[in-house]
Amino acid sequence: MGRKAGTLYINPKKFGNLQKPCVREMVSFLQCLTLSQNSDARCSRQKSLLSACMDAQTGNKRKPWGSINYHLQRLNRGGK
């Protein structure tokens, strides 16, 4: 039961250590929504913390090597 020859493969262990920003804020916002029966007005504090964290992340630059999907498409084009 091995891999087929010639197929593209991504090693999931390589991408397991990527940072996950704003997870704490998102979890607290979702918990608040659950406890308040999806009432957005009751969770304004958690919502503002989440948006502040997300706004802070948009200033970060993308990695210079591009996205994984771009490289998969590029490799697939070259093989034909």
Results as ranks from 00 to 15, higher is better:
Gln57Ile: 00
Ala5Val: 09
His71Gln: 14
Ser48Gly: 01
Val23Asn: 12
Asn76Ile: 05
Ala41Gln: 07
Arg45Asn: 08
Pro21Gly: 04
Met26Tyr: 09
Lys13Ser: 12
Ser39Arg: 13
Phe29Arg: 05
Ile68Tyr: 05
Tyr9Pro: 02
Asn60Ile: 03
Ala41Leu: 04
Phe15Val: 12
Arg62Trp: 08
Ala41Asp: 12
Asn17Val: 08
Leu50Trp: 00
Ser67Trp: 10
Leu18Cys: 14
Pro12Cys: 02
Leu49Gly: 06
Ala5Cys: 10
Asn38Cys: 02
Trp65Phe: 06
Ser28Phe: 03
Gln31Phe: 07
Ser28Leu: 04
Asn38Met: 06
Leu30Phe: 00
Leu30Glu: 15
Gln73Lys: 15
Lys20Phe: 02
Ser48Glu: 10
Met54Glu: 07
Cys43Glu: 00
Gly78Lys: 14
Arg42Lys: 15
Asn69Tyr: 13
Ala5Leu: 14
Asn60Trp: 05
Met1Gln: 10
Leu35Asp: 11
Ser48Tyr: 03
Ile68Val: 09
Pro64Leu: 06
Leu50Pro: 04
Asn60Lys: 06
Arg74Asp: 15
Gly79Val: 14
His71Leu: 10
Asn76Pro: 10
Gly78Pro: 02
Arg77Val: 03
Lys14Asn: 14
Gly59Gln: 11
Gly78Tyr: 00
Val23Gly: 03
Leu49Trp: 07
Gly6Val: 03
Cys43Phe: 00
Asp40Thr: 13
Arg77Leu: 06
Phe15Asp: 15
Arg74Gln: 13
Ala41Trp: 00
Gly79Ile: 10
Asn17Glu: 11
Gly78Thr: 11
Asn38Leu: 01
Ser39Leu: 07
Cys32Asn: 01
Asp40Arg: 13
Gln31Cys: 02
Leu50Asn: 06
Cys53Gln: 01
Leu18Tyr: 09
Arg24Phe: 03
Ala41Val: 04
Ser44Gln: 11
Lys63Trp: 03
Leu75Val: 06
Ala5His: 15
Lys80Leu: 08
Ser39Asn: 15
Lys13Gly: 11
Ser36Ala: 09
Asn11Gln: 07
Ser36His: 07
Leu35His: 12
Asn69Arg: 12
Gln73Asn: 12
Gln46Phe: 00
Leu30Cys: 06
Pro12Ile: 02
Tyr9Ala: 13
Thr7Asp: 14
Arg45Gln: 08
Gln19Trp: 01
